[in-house]
Design a protein around this nucleic acid. Structure first.
Lengths: 263, 263
DNA sequence: CCCTGTGAAGTGTTTCACAGCA
DNA sequence: TGCTGTGAAACACTTCACAGGG
């Protein structure tokens, strides 16, 4: 999941389990849909179905927020929408900056659901001088040289990184230095950040590989047995030598790097 | 995490924990980088650092795959790359179809890391007739009417959904009917699928909401205490009657309760 | 002596099942 | 009666700590 530091390492009372937090947005979405249809109340069973979880889990999750339901009846939709929104911090405005306006960055800038819930695309930043000034999704792209100023002037605390992997750590460092404390990373790179900064990553290639794993299982299964057992696995190198390994000097050798991002 | 059915509900021997499977791609990426730099062996400590996990976890993870290390030395990079690739099913070709060629779909089609490891964009599909024939990332877009044929002709078992949310379930149903058994869903919708079909979702808006939650905590914390405990939470509707009608009332005593917004 | 591999302990999450309230 | 809220059991995952092989 996230790469960042541990959140609240088993701390004080008000602690909502991370797994629960991750589901709240799901509940909120389902509730919002009900709200739009003017449904006044909903049972844990119904809501759970709409959110794609089971009802025991949902009730347990809600129990961490407080007792917001009514026995024998269910939950008041509007009330719950508000409580969850507040818990998630969506009752305030979150200016977001997107760094790296390639295909993906542009797609995100155009993404409607972005602006919807308290999130506002406050700035688009790219390292290509040719892009500066060009509007994407109605917002002019600004040059990376001004990153620091842009972040502080807009009070951005959430940054989205959609740069090529070679640039991600550097961009991350600059964002953090400028005051960003939450990062959503789309670059296939492990970011290292100081304590107190949260990083979440979204990685297409990892998701596909996980699917491939299960897909392979399915295929191997139906044939009865005789799974994929490749003729001859490469022999393990017996060779020992080397040491050094020159730690990970940052600076990627970003040789080629396709438009968006290589593996 | 995923929305799909439970994977292997506590089943047979060869079971690698799901959490481990989710990390294998991370290890693989780190190992590939080492391999490119011709590093022959790596210790659990070094590799763990490169992958952003701790070494005990990494060793435990590898122990599920078998004993591929050498005590006192570490792991053979090439050998491990091969073993993990095989375990993940990346030694075979996975034709993938992307449905919904908007901003995001196009970004994914252009995504380099996509093609890299066994995954191949076999088809782009969109419902807009105007797009049919237009090449995106060098691949001509095909019309959704032919979805069935396209999927079977190309032997696609992994589908990527990047349609608007309203179309996602329908597209999903059609993909499944055509033989797809793994779906990567970018639409902010809960998909329901029959048993045996895996769904993973990638949801920008959920990730942002999770970040906002933690961000809010940080903000509330630095003031010493006096956490966010709003003077008085909005009153719960006591009204059992009603349907329809303005359930707007609920303004929070703490003043606002800004309209929270639809999906 | 270094570093892997792994039991065992610790922590977090899900599910069960039912008491209790509207 | 119907549905929430929640202890307690079951399960999953992580971390510890060290035995043991190279």
């Amino acid at each position: 999941m996230a790469t960042g530091r541990n959140h609240r390492p088993a701390t004080r009372s008000r602690g909502i389990p991370e797994a629960t937090v991750a589901r709240l947005p799901l509940y909120l979405r389902a509730l919002t849909a009900l709200s739009e249809r003017s449904v006044p109340t909903v049972s844990s069973e119904e809501l759970a179905a709409a959110a794609g979880v089971n009802s025991a889990k949902l009730r347990k999750d809600f129990s961490y927020l407080g007792s917001y339901g009514t026995r024998g009846v269910g939950y008041d939709v509007e009330y719950l929408v508000y409580q969850i929104s507040r818990e998630l911090g969506l009752t305030q405005d979150w200016p977001v900056a997107i760094v790296g306006i390639g295909n993906l960055g542009a797609a995100l800038a155009n993404y409607g659901g972005f602006a919807s819930r308290g999130f506002r695309v406050a700035a688009l930043i790219d390292a290509d001088p040719a892009m500066a000034g060009t509007p994407v999704a109605g917002i002019p792209v600004q040059h990376a040289d001004d990153l620091d100023r842009i972040i502080s002037e807009n009070g951005v605390s959430i940054g989205v990184i959609t740069t090529p992997p070679g640039a991600a750590q550097q961009v991350c460092d600059r964002l953090v230095a400028a005051g960003v404390t939450s990062i959503l990373n789309f670059a296939p790179t492990v970011l290292s950040v100081p304590d107190g900064v949260d990083v979440r990553k979204v990685d297409l290639s990892i998701e596909l590989q996980i699917l491939a794993f299960h897909e392979q299982r399915k295929a191997g299964e139906e044939g009865g047995d005789a799974g994929p057992d490749p003729a001859a696995p490469p022999v393990r190198a017996t060779n020992t030598t080397n040491t050094t390994s020159t730690n990970t000097g940052r600076k990627g050798p970003d040789g080629d790097m396709p438009a968006v991002m290589p593996a």
